[in-house]
Design a protein around this nucleic acid. Structure first.
Length: 1120
RNA sequence: AGUCCCGUAGCUCAGCUGGUUAGAGCACUACACUGAUAAUGUAGGGGUCGGCGGUUCAAGUCCGCCCGAGACUACCA
C-alpha cells in the first residue's frame, strides 16, 4: 500500500533540491521532457552563449530563470523545446586575459610567443570556468543541453560563419574602407560601434582644452578684411594633441561670424580675431573681458588692468571666410601629398554654434567628420600623413598612441597620459605641453579644463582614440529599412525596448566594422592579390580545398587545407586569382559579435549539415529568446542584422530583455563595492526555487531588481511554507484514512459548496496563469498562484475544512474533501513547475506516490492543466466572498466585545437589500456559522423598519450627463431621504433639479448602502452590514466551557505526544463550573478528544489547568 | 547634450481605457487563536501618490515644465 511522502517534518528546500536534482540526473528527465514531444511541434529557443572565462553571477541566475520558465511552460504545452547550450569563445576579453597572464602586450605576439602558442593558450583559458558554469546551471535547475553545446571556436562553427560572410559578400555587402574609427591603443584593435556602446564606456573626463589662434595669411583674406592688420581665426579643441595634425578649419557657411578687436589674455598683445557671433559672449566672459566703450578705451588698455576690453568690428557670413589660408599652427610636419592644399578654411554643414567658437579645428586623420569634410572640399584637403621609413603613409601618431619619434619635443610621447604604464606618465601631458607652447607663442586665446563625456575601451578602460584604419565593413546601412520593417513584427518585452531603444538604434544605424587586428578569432575568409585588384571570399572548407588545389597547380605549391582554421595556419594559405596571381589572406579576424549573431545557423553547422533546421524552419527563427537589456545593441542586434541581411527574416519572434540585478540599496553590484552576491551561497542557503520565485515575483523581469535575501526568506515562508504545510496536512490524514484516490471523482454537484468554490477558483487560476505565461508575464503568473495558495486554499479552504479530514467516517463527503484538496495541490504543482521546478516536482511525486494516478514520473513530463469552464461559477465565488467578509465582520465585533470564538453566540442579524441576497447567503450559511461559532442567521428586511438606507452617486454614469453640475448632484443624492430612495427604487426613476436644469435619475445612477443601525453591535464593509446578538444563555455558557475543556484536553494530548488516533480516558477535578458543561456536552467532548469516558473525580495525577479567567482545575489524561 | 524608463506607506510592489474612503505583503503595536503551529486571525498606526502648473464636472491615472535615480544614444570641434 503506497503512502504519501511524509519524510520531511519541516520544509527544507536545499534538501529537496538535492533529491530532485539527483532524480533528474538518474532518470534523464530533461532529455525525456524534450524527446517525448514531436519534432513537428517545436518551440524554438536560442541560448545566448556566455563566455566561460568569467564566473557566473547572481544576474545570470535571473536571466536563466526567465529563459527556463518559458521553455518549461511550452514543454508542458506539448511543444518540443530543444535548448542547445553554447559557449562564446573568441574575442578581446580572452586575448587580454591571456596577455595579462603571460605578462605580454600585443606587440610581443609573434615575437616573444608564437601565434600558434598564443592561440593555444587562448583556447585553454576560455574554458577555465566551464565547470563552475555547469555547476550553477545544475544547481539553479536550469535545463539546457550541456552535453552537446555549440562552441564558437570549432571548425564547423567557423565554417558556417564563413558561409554567412560569403552570402554577404555575394550580396556586395562587404567592403574594405579606410576610415576613422574608434581605436583602442591599449588593446591594439579597432572597436565596433556596439562595442563602444557597452555600458560604462562613456565616462566623464576632465581634459585640457584650447581655443587656438590661427593666423590668416593677409593676401588670402576677402577684400573687406584686408588692410586691417593681423587677423586670427579662433578654433576650439578638446584634444590639443591633434593640433599638429590640423590641416583645415571648418566654418558653417550660413553662420554669422564677427571680427573682434581685443588683446590676448596671456601675452596681452593687441589682436583681431574671428569667431561666430553667437559665441562672442561665451568666449569673452564677463569675468575677464568687458565691452570697450570707445576706440580710445580699447587702446588705453594696460596689461595690469583687471579686465580686457573688446570691440566687435564687423559681421559677415561664414561663406565669406571659405578659402582663407592660414599659417600652420604647429609646424611639426607637412602632409606628404599636396601640402599646398592644406591650411585653409572650408565649409561644413555639421558646424554648430552650441559651444566653442563656431570654427572647427579639422584634423582629417583623427576625426570622422573631419575626414569627410576634408575629402569633400575642392580641392581636397590632404590629411596629415607622412611617409615612414618604408615609404608608407602614416599619421603622426602610431598604433600604440605615441607621437612619431621624429617630431622634436613631442616625439615618442603618448598622446594621453592614460596610455603610459603605471607610474611612468609624465607630470605634464602632451595636451598641457602643447597648450603652454601655444600660450607662449601668442597662439592660444583660452586654455581651460573641461569636463566632457568621452568613450573608453570596454576592456582596457582606457580612452579610445579616433584613428584612421583600413578595415572591412558590412554595409548594414543598405539593409536598414528591411531591419526596421522586420523589427516591427517582433514582440518585445517590454515593448518600449523594441520600439524605442532598438528602433532608434536601427534608425541611426552605421556600417558594421568587422575587422579586428587580433589573433584569437574567426579569420576573415577573404584573399586578395597584392595590388588589391582581385579578391576571393571563401565560404566553406570544400571551397577552400578546391581553391588550394587550383593554387597548388598554378603556382606549383604543395599546400593543404589546415586542420585548424585559426591563425596562424590559415595565414599561410596562398590562393591564386583568375589572372593567375597569388592571393594572400586579409590579416584581420572578425568581430566576436558576429560569432554570437551566427549561432542560429552555426550551432547546426548549417548549411553543410542540418539544412532543414533553417530551410524548413524547424529551428529558425526562434520563438523566444531572453537576455539582459545590455544586449540590445549586442546579441539582439547581431542576431537581427544577420538574419535580416542573409535570410530576410527575423531571428526571433518574442524577446524578453531583462533588467539589472542591483544590490538591496539599488546600487550596481561590483567587486569594488564588495556587494556582489554569490549565487552558489544564495542557492545553497535558500534553495534554488525560493531564489527563482523571489526574483520573478518581486518585480517584472524587465525592471531592475533590488536583490535582497530577506525577500527570498519571505517567499520561502509565505509561499513554499504554506504550500508545504497544506501538503503535510493533507498527507497526514490521507495516510490515516488510506485515501488513494481509488474512488471515482465525486460529481461536482454532490460536493459541498466550499469544494465547488475552491475548484471554481482553481479553474479560474489555471486559465489566468496559462494566459500570463503565454503572454510572457511570469511575474503576474507567480503572484496569482501565491494569492490562491495563501489566501484561498490555505487560509480559507483548509482552515474551514479541517474537521472534514479528521472527523467522522470515511464517507463520500470526506472523499470529496480529499479529492478536492488533492486536485488543488496537484494542479498548483503543475502551474508552478516552470518557475519552481524542484519543489513542485517533489510535491507532484509525493502526491502521485500516494495515488499512482498519473503515469508520468515527473511533473515536467505532464501536460499543463487545462481550465474547465464548466467548473467556474462566478456567482459562487461572489457568495464565498460574502461569507468571508461576513465572517470577518463578526470576528471583528467579537474582538471589540471581548468575546472569544469558543464562546457560542445565538445569532447574527443581517440587513438585506433583496431576496437574491438571501439565497446567496443561505447557501454559505453553515460555513459562516461554524467559522464564527454562532447558532443562526436572521435576515432583516426593509419592511421590518429597522433599516435606513443611504444613497451615493455613481460618478461613472452621471458624470457625463451632469457635467459641471456633478458636484451639486452628488450632494443632492447623498441627502436623499428614505422616501426619496424608496420612490426611486419603486418607480425606477427620480428627478432632481440643479440650477434650473432637470435630470432624471435611474437606479444605476445611484448606489444604495446601509446606514449604521442604531442600538446594535454592528460592523460594515462596503455593501454589507452585520449585527451580532451578544446575549448569553446558560446553555451557551455551558457549551462555551465544554469547548474550553476540549481545547485544554487537546493541548495535554499534544504535550504528551499522543498519536492523533489514540483513545484516551479523562479525569477532571469536580467543580460547579464544569458540571453543566460535562452534563450536557459529554458526548461532544468525548468525540472531539477521542475519549472513551470522562469522569469528575480528584484527578490527583493531573496538572492544574486554567479553564476560565477565574477557575483552574486539575485535569488528568491517560491512554485508554 | 539628446532619447527612453522610473519616482505610490519605513521596505518590496499593485493600482485596467481618468470616476470619489489610494490597496497588498513585509516590518511595527496590541489582542486573540492553536489536532497545518518557526503557521494563522482581528484591530491599529503609518500616504500633500517626487514638485509646480494645465486639461476636465472629476487627475495617482492625460498634457507641459522642473527635481531626483537609472539605462541608452553621441567622434559634434
Amino acid at each position: 500500500m503506497s503512502k504519501y511522502n511524509v519524510d520531511l517534518k519541516q520544509l527544507d528546500l536545499p534538501h529537496i533540491d538535492n533529491l530532485i536534482r539527483q532524480f533528474w540526473e538518474e532518470r534523464d528527465i530533461f532529455k525525456k521532457s524534450v524527446d517525448q514531444r514531436p519534432k513537428s511541434n517545436s518551440f524554438v529557443f536560442f541560448e545566448g552563449p556566455p563566455s566561460a572565462n568569467g564566473k557566473p553571477g547572481i544576474h545570470h541566475v535571473m536571466g536563466r530563470t526567465v529563459k527556463d520558465i518559458f521553455c518549461r511552460f511550452h514543454t508542458m504545452q506539448g511543444k518540443r523545446v530543444e535548448r542547445k547550450g553554447g559557449w562564446d569563445t573568441h574575442g578581446l576579453p580572452i586575448e587580454l586575459s591571456v596577455e595579462k597572464e603571460l605578462g605580454i602586450t600585443k606587440e610581443d605576439i609573434g615575437i616573444k610567443i608564437s601565434v600558434d602558442e598564443y592561440n593555444r593558450m587562448c583556447r585553454k583559458t576560455v574554458m577555465q570556468y566551464k565547470d563552475i558554469w555547469d555547476d550553477i546551471t545544475r544547481k539553479m535547475g536550469y535545463w539546457v543541453d550541456l552535453e552537446h553545446p555549440y562552441i564558437t571556436f570549432n571548425n564547423e562553427y567557423i565554417e558556417s560563419v564563413w558561409w554567412l560572410l560569403g552570402q554577404l559578400y555575394k550580396k556586395q555587402l562587404l567592403y574594405k574602407g579606410y576610415t576613422i574609427q574608434p581605436y583602442s591603443p591599449a588593446a591594439g584593435t579597432g572597436l565596433s560601434s556596439h562595442e563602444l556602446n557597452q555600458p560604462g564606456c562613456y565616462k566623464d573626463v576632465t581634459d585640457t582644452t584650447v581655443v587656438a589662434q590661427f593666423l590668416a595669411k593677409p593676401d588670402s583674406l576677402p577684400t573687406f578684411l584686408q588692410g586691417l592688420g593681423d587677423i586670427h581665426l579662433l578654433a576650439w579643441t578638446t584634444t590639443p594633441w591633434t593640433l599638429p595634425s590640423n590641416t583645415a578649419l571648418t566654418v558653417g557657411p550660413k553662420i554669422d561670424y564677427v571680427l573682434v578687436k581685443t588683446y590676448n589674455p596671456y601675452t596681452f598683445k593687441a589682436i583681431q580675431v574671428i569667431l561666430a557671433k553667437s559665441l562672442v559672449g561665451a568666449q569673452f566672459t564677463e569675468k575677464r573681458f568687458r565691452h570697450a566703450e570707445s576706440e580710445e578705451d580699447l587702446l588705453s588698455y594696460q596689461s595690469t588692468d583687471k579686465k580686457i576690453p573688446y570691440s566687435v568690428l564687423q559681421e559677415f557670413k561664414g561663406e565669406a571666410l571659405i578659402g582663407i589660408r592660414y599659417e600652420q599652427l604647429l609646424p611639426y610636419a607637412l602632409p606628404y601629398q599636396h601640402p599646398e592644399n592644406a591650411f585653409r578654411v572650408i565649409g561644413g554643414a555639421f558646424v554648430t554654434t552650441e559651444d566653442g567658437t563656431g570654427i572647427v579645428h579639422t584634423a582629417p586623420t583623427f576625426g570622422a567628420d573631419d575626414a569627410k569634410v576634408a575629402r569633400e572640399a575642392v580641392p581636397e584637403v590632404p590629411p596629415m600623413l607622412v611617409l615612414d621609413e618604408n615609404g608608407n603613409p602614416v599619421p603622426l601618431v602610431d598604433l600604440q598612441g605615441r607621437f612619431r619619434a621624429d617630431l622634436k619635443d613631442i616625439g615618442g610621447k603618448y598622446v594621453k597620459n592614460e596610455y603610459y604604464k603605471a607610474n611612468e606618465a609624465p607630470e605634464r601631458s602632451v595636451d598641457v605641453e602643447i597648450s603652454i607652447k601655444l600660450k607662449e607663442e601668442n597662439k592660444a586665446f583660452n586654455v581651460e579644463k573641461y569636463v566632457h563625456n568621452y568613450p573608453h575601451c570596454w576592456r582596457t578602460d582606457k580612452p579610445v582614440l579616433y584613428y584612421p584604419l583600413d578595415s572591412w565593413f558590412i554595409q548594414s546601412t543598405a539593409m536598414k529599412d528591411k531591419m526596421i520593417e522586420l523589427n516591427k513584427t517582433i514582440n518585445w518585452k517590454p515593448a518600449h525596448t523594441g520600439e524605442k531603444r532598438f528602433g532608434n538604434w536601427l534608425e541611426n544605424l552605421n556600417d558594421w566594422n568587422l575587422s579586428r587586428s587580433r589573433y584569437w578569432g574567426i579569420p576573415l575568409p577573404i584573399w586578395r592579390t597584392e595590388d588589391t585588384t582581385e579578391e576571393l571570399c571563401i565560404e566553406s572548407v570544400a571551397h577552400l580545398k578546391a581553391e588550394v588545389a587550383k593554387a597548388n597547380e598554378k603556382l606549383g605549391l604543395s599546400q593543404s587545407v589546415p586542420e585548424d582554421l585559426h591563425r596562424p595556419y590559415i595565414d599561410d594559405v596562398v590562393l591564386v586569382s583568375d589572372s593567375g596571381v597569388a592571393m594572400y589572406r586579409e590579416k584581420d579576424v572578425i568581430d566576436v559579435w558576429f560569432d554570437s549573431g551566427s549561432m542560429p545557423y552555426a550551432q547546426w553547422h548549417y548549411p553543410m549539415e542540418n539544412r532543414d533546421n533553417i530551410d524548413k524552419g524547424l529551428s529558425f527563427p526562434a520563438d523566444f529568446i531572453a537576455e539582459g537589456v545590455d544586449q540590445t545593441r549586442g546579441w539582439f542586434f547581431t542576431l537581427h542584422a544577420i538574419a535580416s541581411m542573409v535570410f530576410g527574416s527575423v531571428a526571433f519572434k518574442n524577446v524578453i530583455s531583462n533588467g539589472l540585478v542591483l544590490d538591496k540599496e539599488g546600487a550596481k553590484m561590483s567587486k569594488r563595492w564588495n556587494n556582489v552576491v554569490d549565487p552558489f551561497e544564495t542557492i545553497e542557503t535558500y534553495g534554488a526555487d525560493a531564489t527563482r520565485w523571489y526574483m520573478i515575483s518581486n518585480a517584472q523581469p524587465w525592471d531592475n531588481l533590488k536583490f535582497n535575501v530577506d525577500g527570498i526568506d519571505e517567499v520561502r515562508r509565505k509561499f513554499f511554507g504554506t504550500l508545504f504545510n497544506t501538503y503535510s496536512f493533507f498527507a497526514l490524514y490521507a495516510n490515516i484514512d488510506a485515501f488513494a484516490y481509488q474512488e471515482k471523482p465525486v460529481p461536482l454537484a454532490e460536493r459541498q459548496e466550499i469544494d465547488r468554490w475552491i475548484i471554481s477558483l482553481l479553474n479560474t487560476l489555471v486559465k489566468e496563469v496559462e494566459a500570463e505565461y503565454s503572454d510572457y508575464e511570469p511575474t503576474n503568473a507567480s503572484r496569482k498562484i501565491m494569492t490562491f495558495v495563501d489566501e484561498h486554499l490555505s487560509n480559507w479552504y483548509v482552515r474551514l475544512c479541517r474537521r472534514r479530514f479528521w472527523k467522522g467516517e470515511y464517507s463520500q463527503d470526506k472523499v470529496a474533501a480529499y479529492q478536492t484538496l488533492y486536485d488543488c495541490l496537484n494542479t498548483i504543482a503543475k502551474l508552478s513547475a516552470p518557475i519552481a521546478p524542484m519543489f513542485t516536482d517533489w510535491l507532484y511525486q509525493s502526491l502521485n506516490g500516494g495515488t499512482q494516478l498519473e503515469p508520468q514520473e515527473s511533473v515536467h513530463l505532464v501536460d499543463f492543466p487545462k481550465a474547465d469552464p464548466a467548473s467556474i461559477d462566478k456567482a459562487l465565488e461572489q457568495r464565498m466572498d460574502y461569507a468571508q467578509r461576513i465572517s470577518s465582520l463578526v470576528l471583528s465585533i467579537r474582538k471589540k466585545e471581548n468575546l472569544r470564538v469558543r464562546q457560542p453566540l445565538s445569532k447574527i442579524m443581517l440587513p438585506i437589500l433583496d431576496t437574491e441576497f438571501i439565497n446567496q447567503i443561505d447557501s454559505v450559511k453553515e460555513l459562516i456559522l461554524s467559522e464564527v461559532n454562532v447558532k443562526e442567521i436572521e435576515y432583516i428586511t426593509d419592511t421590518d423598519g429597522f433599516i435606513s438606507k443611504k444613497a451615493k452617486a455613481n460618478f461613472k454614469t452621471l458624470g457625463k450627463r451632469l457635467g459641471k453640475h456633478m458636484k451639486e448632484g452628488a450632494r443632492l443624492i447623498q441627502e436623499m431621504d428614505q422616501t426619496a430612495i424608496r420612490s426611486l427604487e419603486k418607480n425606477e426613476q427620480f428627478d432632481i433639479e440643479i440650477e434650473g436644469e432637470k435630470y432624471t435619475l435611474i437606479p444605476e445612477d445611484i448606489e444604495i448602502f446601509f446606514d449604521e443601525v442604531p442600538g446594535w453591535q454592528v460592523a460594515t464593509d462596503r455593501d454589507i452590514v452585520v449585527a451580532l446578538d451578544i446575549s448569553l444563555t446558560d446553555d451557551l455558557i455551558a457549551e462555551g466551557i465544554a469547548r474550553e475543556l476540549v481545547n485544554r484536553i487537546q493541548n495535554i494530548r499534544k504535550i504528551k505526544e499522543f498519536d492523533v488516533t489514540d483513545k484516551i480516558r479523562v479525569h477532571i477535578e469536580a467543580h460547579d463550573i464544569i458540571h453543566d458543561a460535562i452534563g450536557k456536552f459529554s458526548d461532544y467532548i468525548k468525540s472531539e478528544v477521542l475519549a472513551v469516558d470522562i469522569t469528575m473525580d480528584e484527578a490527583e495525577a493531573g496538572e492544574v489547568v486554567e479553564i476560565t479567567d477565574t477557575v483552574s482545575l486539575r485535569v488528568f489524561v491517560e491512554k485508554a
